[in-house]
Design a protein around this nucleic acid. Structure first.
Lengths: 337, 337
DNA sequence: GCTGACAGTCGAAGCGCTTCGACTGCCTGG
DNA sequence: CCAGGCAGTCGAAGCGCTTCGACTGTCAGC
């Protein structure tokens, strides 16, 4: 059978509780005893039984991670966040329970009531997310990835999309661009009421205004033909347009091809800046100046905040990650004409 | 505090063991009692404590899912499999513990020894995977997604890539193509020694030979320039080439653009068939005739096999999912010239 | 009419761990 | 020189559940 605490205790010639205290460090143990116990642990290959531990200590050492089945986010980013959560959690001695979004509210209740997890991390949070009231009611440590409308008493992590919008506006203003188009997320995102699209737009528009840059905004579906319609329309209506800001992974590629078709060179005639995963930005030729989505950092921070809550530290409030603009080949000073 | 079995028992006026038997259905209970107990469960919102249950029953009702951090697989497919596993597991009353690949062997040992999971599902298995010996040693229910070199005594699930290769060869042979190129996975995949690339090649080459179709095979890195080098070379060397089979997501898009540049119309001049996720196949214009990667089915089957093993049924052997060719706009009869 | 068999229920014994209280020395401060 | 602390250890009491054995009735079979 499996090795138990008692086996270790017998081997080390001490009582079970002593072994427990050696492992948990909750009481002082003499160096010699500690040494003997640890050797027994190693020799026997002891791993504490998770169920027994959870039962006795009322702590599962597990974080539940709720991943949406269908999402506004670009799937690889979702995956990267999830993996980053898993990695960070392990580093903090926690395991990760994978919950799918379709378990919804009941999943949350079940996991908490059954003591499967001590804390919850929710991904792809909507502005008015139905899980939020349940979170409040359950009063369990929780971290949201994304920013709901009402964050009172909640702990959230997200990229500061408002600042990301501003950064893009600044960059293009610095380069002398006077007419810039923002191609936003597709309509389903707005419909789903995830807030980031609106926040980017807000930050972008404000800063552009301050800098004397004229802007147009278009919600733009992904794919070639949808993008074509939007881009053609914008280029026609705004002949002096010299830059695009894009916040939709599925639009970047098509946009570049369309500009080529229109015989507008990037970055000589038109600059392109994107808010997107690096993966997308480095793919085309030229590579795209972008504000990357800090997926890894988001996961890591979420875990850290969850751990802080478990340790009883108050963490409520939003952690907005400062955007970093990475200048690549797709943006340049506006051509003087 | 939380509702316990005892609370339910008290409310229903029965003993704790009776409640347990109502829930587990392991002994007959009279309809009236059952009814009373179930009502108490509902009224109190009872959820059994997972730790206690695991401790007493030696069953965690949890499946560990090991997802690689870096993978040969296309990330969205990985994600789809993972989500499908999670969904299917929940439907079977199991929870899913997320393990990252970098936990490796130790992660497996830990999870098994601590009784965190009853079974393991491994994704992205390599031909000579280091985790396999550990699996054999631990003798725990396990399902591999992917096909290692030696499958003796293991339970595996994968797309039948050999058959997928054959199906593509047949389809193009039926359409009258005599010269077909196979653009395979990039070199890192071969280096990593995941088997699917070789299996596809094998099935494709054999069937092509039988059907009197001449073939070239090129390992092809993703991205525009890498693809360009390969495609240019192949087109030059084989003027009468009239079809491509592609098994690399990152090559499909570039290939189509290159063919356009070369003034070869798809499907009029050149047919293209891919082995790739549907997502990739339906994106370009024309949409690509393809053998989809049945991600959802793979996850579902993996869970089913794991459950069968948990129930004591022998399942060893490989479940190779039969490929289904979906004919779309990118393949057509060879032009008579 | 007696014997099994079986439905239906209960009590109690764990599962493997944590943690509380208690105990023994030994040391320090007054 | 004694009270009080603290390091260091142990035993025992649970944590909330499952499951085994035992018990009481009923009913079918002979």
């Amino acid at each position: 059978m499996v090795v138990t605490l008692a086996d270790v205790a017998a081997r080390a010639g001490v009582s079970a509780s002593t072994v427990s205290y050696v492992i948990s460090r909750k009481r002082p143990i003499s160096p010699e005893t500690r040494e003997r116990v640890l050797r027994a642990v190693a020799e026997l290959g002891y791993h504490p039984n998770a169920g027994a531990r959870a039962l006795a200590s009322q702590r599962s050492n597990t974080i539940a991670l709720m991943v949406p089945l269908r999402s506004d986010m670009y799937v690889p980013v979702l995956m990267e966040i999830a993996m980053s959560v898993a990695t960070a959690a392990r580093a903090a001695g926690q395991d990760v329970l994978l919950l799918t979004g379709d378990e919804g509210i009941q999943g949350l209740r079940r996991v908490v009531a059954s003591g499967l997890a001590d804390a919850v991390i929710l991904m792809d949070v909507e502005l008015d997310d139905e899980r939020i009231p349940v979170l409040r009611e359950l009063a369990i440590p929780a971290v949201l990835i994304g920013l709901p409308a009402e964050t009172e008493g909640l702990t959230c992590v997200d990229l500061d999309f408002t600042a990301a919008g501003s950064v893009c506006a600044d960059h293009l203003a610095d380069l002398g661009h006077r007419y810039v188009a923002l191609l936003g997320a597709d309509r389903t995102v707005y419909r789903r009421r995830t807030g980031f699209a609106a926040r980017t737009l807000d930050g972008f528009t404000r800063r552009a205004l301050e800098r004397g840059v004229r802007t147009v905004h278009r919600s733009c579906d992904g794919g070639f033909s949808a993008t074509a319609a939007t881009v053609d329309e914008v280029l026609e209506a705004w002949p002096s347009l010299s830059a695009f800001v894009v916040q939709n992974e599925a639009v970047v590629g098509p946009l570049l091809h369309l500009l080529a078709q229109h015989r507008r060179a990037v970055p000589e005639d038109v600059s392109v800046v994107a808010i997107c995963p690096d993966q997308i930005a480095v793919q085309p030729q030229p590579r795209i100046t972008s504000v990357p989505i800090p997926a890894e950092e988001m996961g890591r921070r979420a875990v850290r905040l969850a751990m802080a809550q478990l340790a009883g530290k108050p963490t409520s409030g939003s952690t907005l990650i400062r955007p970093k603009l990475v200048v690549r080949g797709s943006s340049a000073a506006r051509a003087r004409s």
